[in-house]
């Protein structure tokens, strides 16, 4: 199973689409590693510079409908090769969310009020998250504070993370 701990990148906007995450012009790359420099190249978010702000980040916290638009699995791949394996959002676009679990990555939805709270309390400080999958809890730490945040993870999605993705799961069962 992948590791879902580390430093948080806050992206304060709803509807961040897959063209913003990885523009179509890079879909001619056949290796995942080649996508690395282009993550968020087209993002429409004032004050965010991927070259400056991505370094060392392992987790994203963002608003609603993250990953809308194209079906490209290059979006989770571009995140993964940059070290990001967990995205926490108020909601996700269907295909993006499924692609994350299909790759054995984690996409967790929290209630919008909880997301608001995390932005208010932590977004302007260096923040880390430790994920306890057994207890369905994140420990969020930053700004001299620490908070436990519960989450729920549907059984099927959990199974996908545990076996390493949908190919392994389907191949064993169907």
């Amino acid at each position: 199973m992948k590791n879902f701990n580390g430093t948080v990148l806050f992206l304060n906007r709803a509807d961040i689409n897959t063209d913003e995450i990885i523009p179509a012009r890079y879909l001619t790359e056949i290796s995942k590693e080649a996508l690395k420099p282009y993550l968020f190249e087209e993002i429409h978010l004032d004050g965010f510079d991927p070259r400056r702000d991505l370094a060392g980040k392992k987790i994203i916290i963002t608003r609603s409908n993250f990953g809308c638009g194209s079906s490209r699995e290059h979006a989770p791949w571009a995140l993964e090769v940059n070290g990001i394996k967990l995205v926490i959002a108020a909601s996700f676009a269907r295909i993006f969310r499924q692609n994350m679990f299909n790759c054995g990555m984690l996409a967790v939805e929290l209630p919008p009020a909880r997301i608001d709270h995390l932005f208010e309390e932590f977004a302007s400080h260096k923040t880390t998250i430790t994920t306890d999958l057994a207890r369905n809890r994140f420990t969020v730490a930053g700004a001299g504070k620490q908070e436990e945040v519960p989450f729920s993870l549907p059984a099927f999605d959990r199974a996908l993370i545990q076996v390493g993705g949908w190919v392994e799961y389907a191949d064993a069962r169907y």
């Binding site: 079906s71 299909n102 190919v167 389907a170 191949d171």
Partner: peptide, 15 residues
């Protein structure tokens, strides 16, 4: 529409 992994399983298993 699906991502590459779903497509891969679709090609392999038809599900």
């Amino acid at each position: 529409g699906v991502g590459t992994t779903d497509l891969e399983v679709g090609i392999l298993k038809g599900v």
